[in-house]
Simulated assay, not measured.
Amino acid sequence: MFESKAEFSELPEFLEATEVAALLRVNRNTVYEAVQRDEIPGVVRIGRVLRFRRDAIIAWIHDG
């Protein structure tokens, strides 16, 4: 999907769970389960809504 960090900059600053799931090529429920286990960085809760900081997700993906 995205080959370099520069291409990630096209994404919005805060991502939705479905966007993170697409980047990771997993189901959205897998993202929610990983959040519950504190495995995904950059999670921002706004009430019941989750958003993910793009830069934290990108760094996490590139770090493996």
Rank of each mutant, 00 (worst) to 15 (best):
M1E: 07
F2R: 05
F2V: 06
S4V: 08
K5F: 10
K5D: 11
K5G: 08
A6Q: 15
E7D: 12
E7H: 13
E7Q: 12
F8S: 03
S9Y: 08
P12Q: 01
P12E: 00
E13A: 07
E13S: 11
F14C: 01
L15Q: 02
E16V: 01
E16Q: 06
A17V: 14
A17R: 09
T18C: 02
V20H: 00
V20S: 03
A21Q: 01
A21F: 01
A22V: 05
A22W: 02
L23R: 00
R25P: 07
V26S: 04
V26C: 03
N27V: 05
N27R: 10
N27K: 09
R28E: 01
R28C: 02
N29S: 15
N29P: 07
N29D: 15
T30F: 06
V31A: 03
V31Q: 02
V31G: 02
E33Q: 13
A34T: 05
V35P: 03
V35C: 04
V35G: 02
Q36S: 09
R37C: 07
R37S: 13
R37I: 09
R37G: 13
R37A: 14
D38V: 11
E39S: 14
I40V: 15
I40N: 12
I40Q: 08
P41Y: 11
P41Q: 07
G42H: 06
G42T: 04
G42N: 07
V43I: 04
V43T: 05
V43A: 07
V43D: 01
R45N: 11
R45Y: 06
I46R: 15
G47Y: 10
R48K: 14
R48E: 13
R48A: 08
R48V: 11
V49R: 14
V49H: 15
V49F: 12
V49E: 10
V49I: 13
V49G: 09
L50S: 07
F52D: 00
R53I: 08
R53P: 03
R54M: 02
D55H: 06
D55W: 04
D55L: 07
I57H: 01
I58F: 14
I58A: 09
I58W: 12
I58C: 11
A59L: 12
I61N: 04
I61V: 12
D63V: 06
G64W: 11
G64L: 12
G64M: 11
G64C: 11
